[in-house]
Amino acid sequence: MKATFQVPSITCNHCVDKIEKFVGEIEGVSFIDVSVEKKSVVVEFDAPATQDLIKEALLDAGQEVV
């Protein structure tokens, strides 16, 4: 499964690193693409990962998800 999250609070590479760390810890996540320019995060994943778990990880990383 693939999901795109709009994350307007992404401003720098530190944000990218933190997002990759938090989302990458979720079992089932196979790909993460964070774009500072587009302020988006694209995640490819399989169970047990879910969109809700990914959104929670983004929030835990200090990001706003819309």
Rank of each mutant, 00 (worst) to 15 (best):
S35G: 04
K55N: 06
P8E: 08
K39P: 02
I26N: 03
I26W: 02
A3T: 07
Q51H: 14
K38I: 05
E25G: 11
S30W: 11
V29I: 06
A49T: 02
N13T: 12
E56W: 12
Q6M: 12
E27V: 11
L59V: 09
T4V: 13
F22K: 08
F5S: 00
Q6K: 11
Q63N: 05
S30M: 14
A57F: 04
V7M: 06
V65N: 05
V34L: 04
T50W: 03
V66D: 07
D60V: 10
D46V: 14
I26E: 00
F45A: 00
E37H: 09
E44K: 10
A3G: 06
E44W: 15
K2H: 08
V7F: 07
G28M: 01
V41M: 04
E20A: 11
K38P: 02
A47P: 13
V41T: 00
P48G: 01
S30R: 13
D46T: 14
E37A: 12
F31Q: 07
A3P: 04
V41E: 01
E56C: 10
I54C: 03
K38G: 09
V7Q: 00
E27P: 11
K39E: 05
V34F: 06
T4H: 11
V34D: 01
K38N: 13
D17E: 14
M1S: 10
L58T: 03
V7R: 00
P48C: 03
D17A: 14
V34A: 06
I26C: 03
I54Q: 02
V42S: 09
M1W: 09
K21P: 01
G24K: 09
I19Y: 01
G28A: 03
E20S: 12
D52S: 11
E56Y: 10
E56A: 14
I19C: 02
Q6W: 15
I26K: 03
T50F: 03
L59T: 07
I10Y: 03
I32Y: 02
V23H: 02
C12W: 10
K39Q: 09
E44L: 15
L53G: 05
V16Q: 05
T4R: 10
V43N: 01
K21T: 07
C15T: 09
L53F: 05
E27F: 09
A57V: 05
S40V: 14
T11F: 15
V42W: 09
D17V: 15
D17Q: 13
F45C: 02
Q6N: 11
A61I: 07
V66I: 12
V16T: 05
K18W: 08
E56L: 14
